[in-house]
Amino acid sequence: MRGGDTGCAHDAFGYPTLVGYVRPMTAAAPVSQPLIKASGLALSRGGRTLARGLSLAAGPGGALVLTGPNGSGKTTLLRALAGLARPEAGQITPDDRGEAIAFLGHAEGLKPSETVIATLQFWAKLHRAAPGSVEAALRAFAIAHLTERSCGHLSAGQRRRVALARVALSGRAVWLLDEPAAPLDSRGRALLAAAVARHRAGGGVVIAATHEALDWPDAEVISLASALESAA
């Protein structure tokens, strides 16, 4: 099938299969194969080229941190990886990755009239998550006391935690997070780092766009600023 992928020299994959593989992954891939891979990407927004010749790959346990100044195309790249935006050129594989992706954008997709628990239970049902995953996600982001609160009455940081809990309970292998830590306090960031570590230990992939430092061990940093320079 995608035999050509195995020869790619990136340090983000080639991690050994990991212990504590709790949840079944939607897209189970062989160890040596990246869960998501992009090559020769060119991105544009509103008819403007943002980056050209961008390549990346992440295998089980891998983490990529996309950095760069405002307007450098971090969000556009994440959306392209999710399959929400179409790159100008280049390829992203696998084609059927949509089913393996959990996405967190700028907008959290929370409904003001819906309670936290109803929101998470809905997403759990939609993703056919294992029983108990809602409770686990509530614990992971320390929001168990908010369950009966409606999403319209949450602070920005609390909203982000609920959205992250939604990502965590999806059981999907590839997490694409846009500025996941921006509105979080120090406790929230620690919880996020722990959840990311757990997901990676379970064989998942995390790709985050951020303009601030995230202390995730062994995460490969990809700077989009240089790609922007080369496009200009």
Partner: peptide, 13 residues
């Protein structure tokens, strides 16, 4: 469209 739900539905399966 405004609150991001659309993106999530698009990826939901």
């Amino acid at each position: 469209t405004a609150d991001g739900t659309l993106e999530l539905y698009a990826l939901a399966g």
